[in-house]
Design a protein around this nucleic acid. Structure first.
Length: 264
DNA sequence: ATGCCCAGAACCTCTGGA
């Protein structure tokens, strides 16, 4: 089985490109982030015509996450237990969606950006990651054999070698010790970040800004990751970062991360 | 080469993204 995660930066602007990619790569399950649309504007029919079931949560033009599957889609949850809200009257945002696809519990995750280390969005980001880790630990404790995939745009640069020049991020989000600690805490919860295991090369990126020739100059960031529970990690045969997908007109600023699982 | 911000809402220019 082939599963993947991709921040598509608007599903309506890129639906045809996503379908073409699904068919070209033979991907069975895709977690997508930043759909940037409300549920009633999601282009369901484009994906259904290609043979995929769709689960989506989106309230307006921001955030939005989905799971597409051609191997079954069940037990959809539009948020994780304890997921924090944001704002003066805290509201749950469309940043997490869970669904079970052929025995694998898939979570499509769009971690809050943080804006800047002195912004309320930053403390929200840390709280969000901590609550997700708490939920993920509980899932694993409840069933140590569960196959769980935490897939998405984590908005954290875990290592200095995950960015073209870490000095450019001094004073910014994504590289602070608290964010990195929150990211690596998933290891203590029993999860393994399998893209690092299979693609360990330094300066391997998943995102390049649209501005200032970032992609041709390879000024990118590695911020899209796949944490797997032990039972799922043992099943991962390979991981690929599809850098080709950043090329050409109409590309997202992120590229897909693909996991190949041993067939059961 | 991959090419010098993009998408959405609204209809002008802001918000958010990193």
């Amino acid at each position: 089985m082939r599963i993947a995660t991709w921040n598509v930066n608007s599903v309506r602007a890129r639906a045809d490109r996503v379908v073409a990619w699904l068919e070209r790569t033979g991907t069975d399950v895709l977690a997508i982030q930043e759909t940037k649309c409300a549920d009633d504007k999601f282009p369901y029919s484009v994906f259904e015509a290609a043979g995929y079931e769709v689960a989506h949560t989106g309230f307006h033009q921001w955030n939005g996450v989905a799971v597409l599957s051609r191997v079954g889609l069940a037990d959809v949850e539009p948020a994780f237990p304890g997921q924090p809200g944001y704002g003066d009257e805290p509201a749950i945002e469309a940043r997490a969606l869970g669904a079970t696809c052929d025995g694998v519990r898939i979570w499509s995750l769009y971690v809050p950006h943080g804006r800047s280390p002195d912004h309320p969005h930053y403390t929200y980001k840390l709280r969000w990651l901590e609550q997700l880790r708490t939920a993920a630990a509980a899932w694993h404790d409840a069933d140590p054999q569960a196959q769980i995939a935490l897939l998405g745009d984590w908005n954290v640069i875990p290592l200095d070698t995950d960015v073209y020049d870490v000095a450019d991020f001094a004073g910014h989000t994504h590289v602070t010790p608290a964010e990195r600690e929150a990211f690596f805490a998933f290891e203590q919860a029993g999860y393994t970040e399998v893209s690092r295991v299979h693609v360990p090369a330094e300066h391997t990126y998943t995102y390049w800004d649209y501005q200032q020739l970032a992609f041709p100059k390879n000024r990118g960031l590695r911020i899209d990751f796949a944490y797997a529970s032990p039972a799922l990690a043992a099943r991962v045969e390979g991981v690929r970062i599809d850098r080709e997908e950043r090329k050409g007109k109409g590309a997202s600023d992120h590229v897909p991360v693909i996991l190949d699982l041993e067939n059961r």
